[in-house]
């Protein structure tokens, strides 16, 4: 019986190591962090793409005629905005998304580091009886 991604403890392994509550908690934390990491990585990818779109947009918008209002999407509708206002909004959105991407990045780094620690601890106790690698 194993989790979807990790065969946590291999059945046939006969090394005599008792699993203590502390070990169990480490295993839980590891599994939890792994799930969290996956969802953060998904989110990071999404935001990163969004950021690239915004960067492109910021470049393109420079080339527009500043006499012409631009349709800018707010909610589900487009609002005709003077170019300058639209640019300001793009800048604001860019700043917001930069902050989000940075935050995700540091969360991912933190979780990865924590997982490495747990890996070391668990491998040193269970050796080959436990598998913590991504399938």
């Amino acid at each position: 019986m194993s989790t979807d991604k990790f065969p946590l403890l291999q059945r046939e392994e006969e090394r005599d190591v008792e699993v203590t509550w502390e070990d169990q908690q480490r295993i839980n934390t590891f599994s939890k962090l792994n799930t969290r990491l996956e969802s953060l990585e998904d989110e990071y990818k999404k935001q990163k793409t969004e950021k690239e779109y915004l960067d492109d947009l910021a470049m393109e918008i420079e080339l527009l005629d500043d006499e012409q209002p631009v349709p800018y999407k707010i909610g589900d509708a487009f609002v005709m905005l003077p170019l300058e206002k639209a640019q300001n909004r793009v800048e604001k959105e860019k700043d917001a998304i930069d902050a989000v991407v940075e935050d995700l990045d540091s969360q991912i780094a933190g979780i990865s580091a924590e997982m490495e620690e747990l890996k070391k601890a668990l491998y040193s106790r269970f050796g080959k009886a436990i598998n913590l690698e991504r399938a």
């Binding site: 194993s2 989790t3 946590l8 403890l9 295993i27 599994s31 799930t35």
Partner: peptide, 24 residues
Amino acid sequence: LEFLRDQITIMEVNTARVYNWDVK
């Protein structure tokens, strides 16, 4: 969801250990 994951992991580890215990 994280809590449930913990509980599922505990049950899986329990299962693996009882199984191993039985094999031995």
